[in-house]
């Protein structure tokens, strides 16, 4: 474990230094990652300029959803960047080389990349949360702060697992990549708004199959002291770590099956 951690720091450190060689490029990428989130949130602000409430939620309350999903997704993207470029390894056949090295394939893909540029998006998400906190009259009790912190960690783990599962689909087909990415990009877009505006089947999907509802919606209901319009008890807001663990286990299983199934591209 310690050996792996040291190795991870070393490999990722090299990637980091590599990214810093192109300072201007890096700065542009960070700026772009900040501006995308800002532009998307600006749209929410524009909408709330026209209407006071969205399905009973105020701007500050939607901002909590926005901030939580932005931070979790950006952190997951940062750490799972290796799985983002992993399809290319499959196509080019370089994954064969990974399999011959005396280290787990999962670890090697994980340590192959760290997208430091996503730090801009994380900061942006945090800023939106701070903004939300200012416009809301929420008392920040220790329980609430603990739930919030656990939610960010669990949310990151849920998105991380999702990215791994999406990447694993490449063991079977490399053509469905864009369709698979809908789960992550579409998922973030979905959980940035109160989940009760969607049809029941989609809410169930986001609760029981791909547990994105635990990244923002259920914890936000607890933190904001809102009753679930669908009648779920308040303690569902504490379940994010459980959902993250279960989904993480699923991702690991899918990945293992994929690696065992892999036979190389041949040509």
């Amino acid at each position: 474990m310690i050996r792996h951690a040291a190795l991870y720091a070393r490999l990722v450190g090299a990637r980091g230094r590599g990214q810093m060689q192109y300072r201007l490029s890096f700065a542009t990428l960070v700026l772009a990652s900040v501006l995308v989130t800002l532009a998307e949130f600006l749209v929410v602000v524009v909408i709330f300029g026209r209407i006071p409430h969205l399905a009973g939620w105020s701007l500050g309350e939607v901002a909590v959803l926005y901030g939580l999903s932005a931070i979790s997704f950006a952190m997951a993207e940062m750490f799972a960047a290796g799985f983002d470029v992993f399809p290319r390894q499959i196509v080019q056949g370089t994954f064969d080389r990974v399999l011959t090295r005396p280290l787990g394939a999962f670890f090697q893909v994980l340590a192959s990349e760290l997208a430091l540029r996503k730090i801009g998006k994380v900061a942006q998400g945090a800023a939106i949360l701070v903004y939300a906190q200012h416009s809301l009259a929420v008392h920040w009790s220790p329980e609430r702060l603990v739930v919030l912190a656990l939610t960010v960690v669990s949310g990151t783990a849920i998105f991380f697992s999702l990215i791994v599962i999406c990447a694993t689909s490449c063991f079977w087909t490399v053509q469905a990549n864009e369709a698979v990415n809908v789960l992550t990009n579409g998922g973030t877009a979905m959980i940035s708004y109160p989940l009760d505006i969607y049809h029941a089947w989609l809410r169930r999907l986001a609760t029981f199959v791909v547990p994105l509802a635990f990244v923002s919606y259920y914890p936000a209901l607890y933190v904001l002291d809102r009753a679930d319009p669908l009648g779920l008890p308040a303690w569902v807001g504490f379940l994010s770590p459980v959902a993250a663990a279960a989904f993480g286990f699923l991702a690991w299983t899918v990945w293992s099956v994929g690696v065992r199934h892999y036979q190389g591209t041949g040509s």
Partner: peptide, 13 residues
């Protein structure tokens, strides 16, 4: 997804 959000906007307007 976006269609659902817009329908929600018009719950009150």
């Amino acid at each position: 997804l976006r269609g659902s959000v817009f329908i929600a906007l018009y719950q009150t307007e």
